[in-house]
Amino acid sequence: MVEDMNKVMNSGVSSSASPSKVIGVSVYSDNVQSAEGNTPALEMIMESQDLKVHYGSYLAVRDVNLQVHKNEITALIGPSGCGKSTILRCFNRMNDLIPTAKVSGSVIYRGIDLYGPDANAGEVRRRIGMVFQKPNPFPKSIFDNVAFGPRVNGKPSKQETEELVERSLKRAALWDEVKDRLKQSAFSLSGGQQQRLCIARALAVDPDVLLMDEPCSALDPIATGRIEDLMHEIKGEYPIVIVTHNMQQAARVSNRTAFFNTEVDADATRPTGVLVEYDSTQKIFSAPSDPRTEQYISGRMG
C-alpha cells in the first residue's frame, strides 16, 4: 500500500487520468463517469434540507439543499462571502462554537437530523471529520497529534494507539516521511506535511465523512497535488465535501459541484449566500443550467 501511495505522490497532479477540455478547465474523465452515469448504486450519506444560517439577525446563507453521496467528492465553490464555509461547518456542527450563529432547516445524516434531539455535537464531529484552511497541528509531537483523537474518544492501549497512528499516517501518505521522527514537534514539518498530518489526525478517529475547508489554500502546487491525489485515494472510504476557491481544483477532484453566489435580498442590506446550482461536476463546468454559474466559471464574475 505504501508503494502505491508513493506512486501516487510522485505522479503529481497531472497523471491520474486524461483531461478533457471544458470551458478552460480540465475535468478528469474518471470523475465524470460515476456522476454522469446515473448509477442507481449512489448511496446518499448526508442531505441538507432548507438549511439557513443566521449570524445574529444577519441571514448569511439560505435555502441550501444538497446531498453528499458515498464514494464521491462534493465541491462547494463560489465567490468570497457566499456562505460555503458556513454551510460546511453546519455539516459537523462546528457552527455551535460561534455563539451568534443560528442554524435552521436540517441536515440529515444517515436518517438522523444532526440538529435534532438524537444528535450530540461531539459524536457528530467524531463521525464527520474536518480539515481546516490553515494547517492547525497541535503544539505536540507528530505522534501525539494523530493519537489525540483516539485518546479523547476512548482509552486505547499503547499498542492500539501505535498501530492506529501508523495506519492513519500511512493512509494520509505521510508515514514514510515521518516514521523516524514521530516524537518531534509537528511544527517541524513543512506546510504540506502539516496539512497531511491534519488529515491523518482526522482519519485516526475513523470518520464516516470528511469535510475540507479550502485545505490547499495555504499550500504550494506540489503539496496541493499530493493532497488532491490523497483525496482521490481515500474517497472510496471517506466521502469528502470540500470548499475551494480554486475552480480548477473543484473540476479536478470532485464528482459533484455546488455553486454558491451572493444576493442582496429585498429586506436586507448585506448580501446573503444562496445555492445557485448543484449538479455533477461535469455538468456544472460544461453546461451549467444557470447563467450565473456560467458567468462565474468562465471568469466574468467573482
Partner: peptide
C-alpha cells in the same frame, strides 16, 4: 491561545473540558 487549536480539538470530537485541559 489561537482559536484554530480549539477548533482542531473540537473537530475530533473532544469535549469542552478535554479541549481546555489537553490543549
Amino acid at each position: 491561545v489561537p482559536p484554530s487549536l480549539r477548533e482542531g480539538s473540537y473537530a475530533l470530537g473532544a469535549t469542552k473540558w478535554q479541549t481546555i485541559r489537553k490543549q
